[in-house]
Nucleic acid binder design. Structure first.
Lengths: 219, 219
DNA sequence: GGATGTTTCAAACAGTCGTTTGAATAAATG
DNA sequence: CATTTATTCAAACGACTGTTTGAAACATCC
């Protein structure tokens, strides 16, 4: 099975390079040169550069999303009849993706890629991601509602949005933390980083709601 | 002064297209076609595509940063001998950039561009941005320390990082909010959005600090 | 062994990219 | 007016892009 070997080499190399430089900035020739495989192998195994990106993303994201849903289900069981705990929901969302960085030998390139994907405006990738994330969004949206009963829907949407931004930025641009502040993001285990992120976002979700003025309808 | 006209047309068009599709995804030919100017005009007025990007960014970012520093200085005066208020610091950071969207007729493309710039890993742009933001980072870093005395430096760095992520995501991907949740980000004035973001991030900054275990040194 | 299907490879395809050139035009200056 | 300077323009440069081709090399099975 030399094919599997080539396929994996392409996936690993593409993952690393996409994470480092972005999708558009990396050419197939960059990839095949680094992976030491033939140029045409990419199209033979994946069909197109876009399809390669999808394969790279889903290879890592699918198990992460499965684990997210599993952790959330377990949190529900643990809560029993009691209210779902916000921190448990957030941990279910964060832990799998942050652990994937530490566990796999990919050297953290995967999380940068996932973070980057959120901010990349590749239209095809966007559609692909919505499909990959559909179940996660549905389930966690419901879980947040349960953990924060009574929070206005619009406010909930915005806060989820802020939370997603903090998460994506942490995944994607951990190196910026070091360059701007001098704090080394890699100095501590992923558990500590997740703990910090949970603390921050949970407090944000629970913030006292400012009463926003109704939008003046002029028509 | 037809030159100024051409120069401005290029800047406006490049700003819009870069914001929509990203730096790499937009070619100079896309820009000059939309701006209805000659291809060589870009190099005549700006020197290179990279330099054009820098010009696009700094044209908007410089006044925004000036206003940020001015608002922060005013907040200091208002506080007098009292402790600087966290919300005032955050507002000084958010208001100018969010207002720039509403005020200028660019149709919000500028804020998306600024948000995108944070997440783009264009190495040259990164260096450029560090220079443009240097004063802002120094001043606001100090302000956060004053507003939150006693907060551990590492924790402060991380929370600033989370805050920057929430801000950048809100600026860059406001449309995702609509596509994922159905909430229309443009339905309310920028003041309300800023208020929501201030509430969320201020609560995050003030969250009870979890006592992180010391990193086990194995050597 | 020969035939069949899978995987690799060098070479080329048709475009697009950022950039440069040198002449043509417009504006400003004497 | 002529002359110098600033700006526009069409055309081309070489390099790079994703993709395709068809023949080799390899593995598998009858």
């Amino acid at each position: 099975m030399a094919s599997t070997d080539t396929k994996t080499k392409i996936l690993d190399t593409a993952e690393r390079l996409f994470a480092q430089k972005g999708f558009d900035a990396v050419s197939l020739r960059n990839i095949v040169e680094a992976a030491k495989v033939n140029l045409a192998a990419v199209h033979y195994h994946f069909g197109s550069k876009q399809a390669l990106l999808h394969a790279v993303v889903s290879r890592r994201l699918r198990p992460v999303n499965d684990e997210r849903l599993a952790m959330l289900a377990e949190a529900r069981i643990k809560a029993g009849k009691r209210k779902l705990k916000l921190e448990a929901v957030l941990e279910s969302l964060f832990v799998p993706v942050f652990r994937a960085q530490a566990s796999h030998k990919s050297g953290g390139s995967f999380t940068r890629l996932i973070g980057r994907v959120v901010f990349d405006r590749n239209a095809e990738l966007q559609k692909f991601m919505v499909g990959e994330l559909a179940q996660v969004i549905i389930q966690f949206s419901r879980a947040f509602d349960e953990a924060l009963p009574g929070l206005d829907k619009t406010e909930m949407d915005w806060r989820s949005h802020f939370m997603a931004g903090a998460m994506a930025h942490t995944l994607c641009n951990a190196d910026l933390l070091a360059s701007f502040t001098g704090t080394d993001a890699g100095a501590e285990g992923y558990e500590t980083t997740v703990q910090r992120l949970v603390d921050f976002t949970a407090a944000g979700f629970r913030a006292k709601v400012f009463t926003h003025p109704k939008k003046q309808k002029s028509s």
